[in-house]
């Protein structure tokens, strides 16, 4: 009897320790980034272009703007496609085609992002004969589409059938029902999921390496390569220059802050009950 109780207490402690170790990783990461990154952050970091190797100063203004542009473009390409496809699955789809699409989206969701980079390279970089912001956005769109599909479908399906019936019984067309009742009712959830999806792709690096590539200067068009924060972190972290490594820490702090802010906003403010991951 007592032995069983002791086992119970010991296992409670052990599994609790596992949980504690897991979450301590976050504080560990935060601690290092704040310590090293915070020391290297300066006003210049946000306003200056990168300095040549071994010259002090310089910043990542172009990468910050580049990441912003890239995400905007992704939101314009990927999110509408994913959203529309999610609406199809939840509202308009027949059985067979829908399950094929659903399965395919799951499959796409599991494809390693570096492989998606290869495909975006073949689809955009090769025909345009140059690295470009557009190619990066295409790569990120391919990643964000399955995420958006899944959250959209999930939240539209959570809208009670009785609301659809009410609208249809009032003489609304199907599309009117979907546009004026179902989507507004699911809006917060879908928005939350979309923000989380965008936050996830904001940190993607691998698919950008040979699509949007990098750029020491400002990006001046969709058809030009662009600097982005994740790729800068990578390039600077593996560089031999002390100053660049310091900037990599600073960039990582900025990126992580943005992502945590987006996550906190989405999970706490927009939908207190919390959208699930994925």
């Amino acid at each position: 009897m007592t032995r069983r109780k002791i086992t119970n207490a010991v296992m409670f402690g052990l599994t609790g320790l596992c949980a504690l170790l897991t979450i301590s990783v976050l504080f560990f990461i935060l601690g290092y980034l704040v310590y090293y990154g915070g020391r290297s952050l300066s006003w210049d970091f946000f306003t200056q272009l990168p300095a040549p190797p071994n010259e002090p100063g310089g910043g990542m203004a172009n990468a910050i703007v580049g990441t912003g542009k890239l995400l905007l473009l992704t939101a314009l390409i990927g999110v509408p496609i994913g959203f529309a496809a999610g609406v199809y699955l939840a509202e308009f789809g027949g059985r067979t085609f829908s399950s094929i699409v659903r399965y395919t989206a799951d499959l796409l969701n599991g494809v390693p992002s570096i492989v998606i980079g290869i495909v975006a390279y073949a689809l955009v970089v090769v025909p345009m004969k140059r690295f470009s912001l557009l190619a990066g956005a295409v790569a990120l769109s391919i990643i964000v589409i399955p995420i958006t599909i899944r959250t959209t479908e999930q939240f539209l399906r959570a809208v009670p059938h009785s609301l659809r019936e009410a609208a249809l019984a009032l003489g609304a067309r199907k599309w009117q029902t979907v546009a004026t009742v179902v989507i507004p009712a699911a809006f917060r959830g879908v928005l939350t999921g979309t923000i989380l999806g965008m936050a996830r792709v904001a940190g993607e690096t691998a698919p950008l390496l040979f699509t949007s590539f990098s750029n020491q200067f400002w990006n001046r068009g969709l058809d030009e390569p662009a600097a982005t924060l994740p790729v800068m972190i990578f390039n600077y972290a593996i560089s031999p220059y002390e100053e660049w490594r310091r900037q990599a820490w600073a960039a990582a702090l900025v990126l992580l802050t943005l992502m945590l802010a987006a996550n906190l906003a989405a999970r706490l403010v927009l939908s207190p009950r919390g959208a699930r991951h994925g």
């Binding site: 897991t22 979450i23 990783v25 976050l26 990461i29 290092y32 980034l33 090293y36 989380l196 936050a199 996830r200 904001a202 940190g203 993607e204 690096t205 691998a206 994740p230 972190i233 990578f234 972290a237 593996i238 490594r245 990599a248 820490w249 990582a252 990126l255 992580l256 992502m259 945590l260 996550n263 906190l264 999970r267 919390g274 991951h277």
Partner: peptide, 21 residues
Amino acid sequence: FIVELLAAVPSVIYGLLGIFV
């Protein structure tokens, strides 16, 4: 909630800590 935040940390940041720590 913290575990879910952890899943959102970009891999390049894990790499950074990997190299330097």
